[in-house]
Write a protein that binds this DNA or RNA. Structure first.
Length: 465
DNA sequence: CTGGGGAAGGGGCCC
DNA sequence: TGGGCCCCTTCCCCA
C-alpha cells in the first residue's frame, strides 16, 4: 500500500514536471510568436502611418487645388482676357491677337517637331491680382550661347520659386523651320515663376520616355503625358490593334499649327491621329494650367523632367486625302476660351477623354504613375469645378440632352461618341479606309455603304469608281 | 435625276 | 436605369 502511494506520488510529480515543461514550451512559443507578431504589428503601424501621411498630403493638395481653381475661375470671370501670349507666339495659332481665358500652354511649331532654341516661349499671365507666371522654354544651346536666351520674370516674384523643367522640348517656331534649321539640343527648360512665397516645389523625373510607353523617335523631345489608348479617338473595333502599336502619336504633342495647313495625317494603319496629338496638346495646356499655376498655400508644383528621345511620330505620310477638312482653329480657341471662362456647360472635352483613357493599361514606371496621379488630380479638380458649377454635374438631366459639346464649334451632341465622330469633321480624321480603294471615311457606316458600292459594281461588272 | 459621300440622329444591345 | 458603344437610317450636298 505504501509502495502504491509512493508510486502515485512519483507519477504525480513526473506528470507535474511534464506539464510544467509543456507549459513552459507553450509559453516560450507564444512569447516568440508574440514577439514576431509585435514586430510585424509595429512595422505595419509604421507603414500605416506613412500611408496616412501620404493620404493626408494628397487630400491637402486636392483641397488646395480645388480652392485655387475656384479662385482662379472667379478671377477669370472678372478678368477674362488677362492672359497674354508674349513674343512671337502671340497669335501664332489664331493668326491674330492673343490667347485668353487662362490658356498658358505652349504649342509646338508647325511642320517641325523640334523647338527652336532662339525662340523661347514666354507666356505671361499678365498683371493683376493673381499670381504671375512666366514660362520660358529655352535650350541648353541657348543657355550656353547666351544671346537669345530670354528668361523673363514677373515683377516682385521670388526667384526661389523658379523651376526648370527639362522637358526636352524645343521652343515653338512660327517661321518656316526650313529657313532656320533646328539645332540639335538636349534639353530645354520651362521656368515657372510663382509670385507667392509658399510654393512648394516637387520634382519628378522621368528618365526615358519609353517608360511612358512611347516608341523612340529622333529629334523629338516633348513633355509628355502618356495617352495610353487611342480608343476614345479611334474607337471603332475595326481599327484593330494597329493603332496601339508602332508610331503612336498619343505620345507626342501635336499642335494646332500642325493641323492648320491642312496636311493633317490621316489613315488608320500608317498615319497618325491628329486629334490625339491635339488633345495631348490640349491636355498639356490643362496640365500646365493646373500644375504650373499654383499660387500660395504651399501647393505642390510638379516638375516633370523628361530625358531622352521623345517619340514624336507625325508620319511622313501626312498628305491629306481628298476632301479633308481643315481645322477651324479660331473656333478651337474660342472654344477654349469659353471652356475656361464658362463652366456652365458640360463638355466632352479632351480633358475628359484623356482621363477616361487612363483606364487603359500601359506600361508606366512609378514616376510615370506619379505624374499620372498628379495629372489626374488636375483633371479631377477641373471636373469637380465644372461639375459644381453645373449644379449636379453632367450625369444629371436628360440623357438625350446635347450635353457634349464639340471642342471646335461648340455644337452639342447627345453622347461623347457623337462628339468624337463629329470632331472628325474638324480634324479630318478618317480612320476607316476601304480595302479596295484608298478612300477613307470618318464613319464606319459610310465605309460600309461605300463597300456596298464596290460590291454592286462587281456584281454589275462596272468599272470601279 | 441619279449615284455617292458627308454628317447627324435614332435605336438596340450590353454592362 | 443610365451610359457606352455600335449600327442603321436619313438628310443634305455635289458631280
Amino acid at each position: 500500500m505504501a509502495n502504491c502511494m509512493v508510486f502515485h506520488t512519483q507519477i504525480a510529480s513526473i506528470m507535474e514536471v511534464l506539464a510544467n515543461a509543456a507549459v513552459a514550451d507553450i509559453c516560450k512559443l507564444v512569447d516568440d510568436d508574440y514577439a514576431v507578431f509585435r514586430l510585424e504589428m509595429t512595422q505595419s503601424q509604421k507603414e500605416n502611418r506613412a500611408l496616412r501621411r501620404k493620404l493626408q498630403l494628397l487630400e491637402l493638395k486636392v483641397a488646395r487645388e480645388r480652392a485655387e481653381r475656384t479662385i482662379r475661375e472667379r478671377v477669370l470671370a472678372s478678368r477674362p482676357s488677362s492672359v497674354k501670349i508674349l513674343d512671337r507666339y502671340r497669335g501664332m495659332a489664331r493668326g491674330e491677337g492673343h490667347l485668353t481665358g487662362g490658356h498658358r500652354s505652349f504649342v509646338k511649331p508647325a511642320r517641325d517637331n523640334t523647338w527652336r532654341d532662339d525662340q523661347p516661349i514666354t507666356v505671361d499671365e499678365g498683371s493683376g491680382t493673381s499670381t504671375q507666371h512666366v514660362i520660358v522654354i529655352e535650350s541648353t544651346d541657348a543657355e550656353a550661347a547666351g544671346p537669345g536666351v530670354k528668361q523673363e520674370r514677373s515683377e516682385g516674384e521670388d526667384p526661389r520659386h523658379s523651376r526648370d523643367i527639362q522637358t526636352g522640348v524645343h521652343p515653338v517656331a512660327t517661321e518656316d523651320p526650313t529657313t532656320t534649321p533646328a539645332q540639335p539640343r538636349t534639353r530645354h527648360s520651362i521656368t515657372e515663376v510663382s509670385g507667392t512665397p509658399n510654393a512648394v516645389l516637387k520634382t519628378e523625373t522621368i528618365t526615358g520616355l519609353r517608360q511612358l510607353g512611347c516608341p523612340p523617335a529622333p529629334r523629338s523631345e516633348y513633355l509628355l503625358y502618356s495617352n495610353p489608348s487611342p480608343r476614345t479617338v479611334l474607337s471603332h473595333r475595326d481599327l484593330g490593334d494597329s493603332l496601339l502599336t508602332g508610331n503612336d502619336p498619343s505620345c507626342a504633342y501635336a499642335t494646332l499649327t500642325e493641323m492648320i495647313p491642312g496636311v493633317m495625317p490621316l489613315g488608320l494603319d500608317t498615319q497618325t491621329n491628329p486629334m490625339r496629338g491635339d488633345w495631348n496638346q490640349y491636355s498639356s495646356s490643362v496640365y500646365s494650367e493646373g500644375c504650373l499655376d499654383k499660387k500660395g498655400e504651399g501647393l505642390v508644383v510638379d516638375e516633370v523632367k523628361v530625358e531622352g528621345d521623345v517619340p514624336l511620330t507625325w508620319n511622313a505620310e501626312s498628305n491629306l486625302g481628298e476632301g479633308h477638312s481643315q481645322v477651324n482653329t479660331s473656333d478651337f480657341w474660342d472654344y477654349r476660351e469659353s471652356l475656361e471662362t464658362n463652366t456652365n456647360f458640360a463638355t466632352h472635352s479632351p480633358l475628359h477623354t484623356l482621363r477616361d483613357r487612363d483606364s487603359v493599361s500601359t506600361t508606366m514606371a512609378p514616376s510615370d504613375s506619379h505624374v499620372r496621379v498628379l495629372f489626374d488630380q488636375v483633371l479631377n479638380s477641373n471636373d469637380r469645378v465644372r461639375s459644381q458649377s453645373q449644379g449636379g454635374g453632367a450625369t444629371s438631366g436628360n440623357s438625350k440632352e446635347k450635353r457634349f459639346l464639340c471642342m471646335f464649334c461648340n455644337k452639342g451632341f447627345s453622347s461623347p461618341q457623337k462628339v468624337e465622330i463629329h470632331q472628325r469633321v474638324h480634324t479630318g480624321e478618317k480612320p476607316y479606309s476601304c480595302t479596295q480603294c484608298q478612300m477613307r471615311f470618318a464613319q464606319a457606316c459610310n465605309l460600309k455603304r461605300h463597300q456596298r458600292v464596290h460590291k454592286k459594281r462587281e456584281i454589275l461588272q462596272l468599272p470601279p469608281v
